[in-house]
């Protein structure tokens, strides 16, 4: 019993660690490729007269896209395990095929979107296609491999009743949602709109006026990877890692209580605790940094008079 529990906690910790890496890689990947909500501004920029050299990877939203990559990786790994291939090798082959599909989708999205903007004189830059696609593929490989390895741990070590491809789909969607919700606002508002005043939002007149020139030369999507890997990526990783860790932790520890309902109650308690923490962080951030409070609005007037 105790040995089982210790193994369960160990697997939970390992799965949480894998998920953290997955979340960080996923957000970095999507920011390099401009997928998700910041994509709309990249798409809009040429229409407003701002020709740019930023990647435009429009493959639906991140949750369905990562649902496919991870389900595909897990499905191929499952198929190779079904014909008795070594599990680690099967997971690598699965992630590799999924990354191939991801890379092809990325190129067709960039070519399609850019060619359809010919009216606004936005050219297709082939060097972007060559240099950025491979970098997103590398990050996607890390994200997919860690996610499907985590799913395999759930099946093999924790005895999860779902088959591997279904777990890949579910956790892939969760991974895309975590990266999209946590990391993208950071890239979209703070990286693309550095020319706007901090906290000013994006007024209609500034739509499409994204940062196109770098400190030296022209901004490439690869710079977004460097920027994201500092804060947005790790934040997404922490988010997804915590989701996976708490999900497994509550099941491993509390499932024996009240005929399985112990785990459900523990889940509700965890959500309530996080709601309180979130509320506290939000109000603290608004009072500390927000420019729209009455006190902050009154200060410039005093200075002027």
């Amino acid at each position: 019993m105790v040995e089982n529990l210790v193994l369960g906690i160990g697997v939970t910790a390992l799965a949480g660690a894998l998920a953290t890496v997955a979340g960080a890689a996923e957000d970095t990947e999507s920011d390099i490729g401009s997928q998700g909500d910041p994509n709309s501004q990249v798409q809009l920029a040429p229409q407003m007269g701002y020709i740019h050299r930023i990647y435009n990877k429009a493959i639906s939203g991140e949750p369905p896209a990562y649902g496919l990559w991870c389900a595909l990786g897990a499905g191929i790994a499952w198929a190779f395990m079904a014909i008795n291939l070594n599990a680690i090798l099967a997971l690598i082959v699965g992630a590799a095929v999924a990354v191939f599909v991801q890379g092809v989708y990325a190129t067709t999205a960039y070519l399609g979107r850019t060619a359809s903007l010919a009216k606004f004189e936005q050219p297709v830059y082939i060097d972007i296609l060559k240099s950025v696609t491979t970098v997103t593929m590398a990050h996607a490989f890390v994200a997919i491999f860690t996610t499907i390895s985590m799913c395999y741990l759930m099946v093999a070590a924790l005895g999860h009743p779902f088959p591997l491809p279904l777990l890949g789909l579910v956790w892939g969607i969760a991974l895309g949602a975590a990266g999209s919700a946590t990391g993208n606002p950071f890239y979209g508002k703070e990286r693309q709109y550095q020319e706007q005043k901090f906290g000013a939002g994006v007024p209609i007149s500034a739509s499409g006026n994204i940062v196109r020139y770098a400190e030296a030369g022209e901004r490439s999507s690869l710079d977004n990877g460097w920027f994201t890997s500092k804060l947005g990526g790790p934040a997404s990783g922490l988010c997804f890692g915590l989701i996976v860790f708490f999900e497994l932790w509550r099941t491993v520890l509390f499932e024996p209580f009240a005929g399985g309902w112990g785990a459900v109650i523990a889940g509700v308690v965890v959500i309530l605790i996080f709601m309180v923490i979130d509320r506290f962080v939000e109000t603290w951030a608004r009072t500390t940094f927000g420019p729209y409070t009455e006190v902050a609005a009154a200060e410039p007037e005093e200075a002027a008079s």
Binding site: L111, T114, A118, K119, V124
Partner: peptide, 13 residues
């Protein structure tokens, strides 16, 4: 495509 460029800078419209 409007133009098919390899390693060229931004051309303002």
């Amino acid at each position: 495509a409007y133009d098919w460029l390899d390693a060229k800078p931004i051309r303002e419209p």
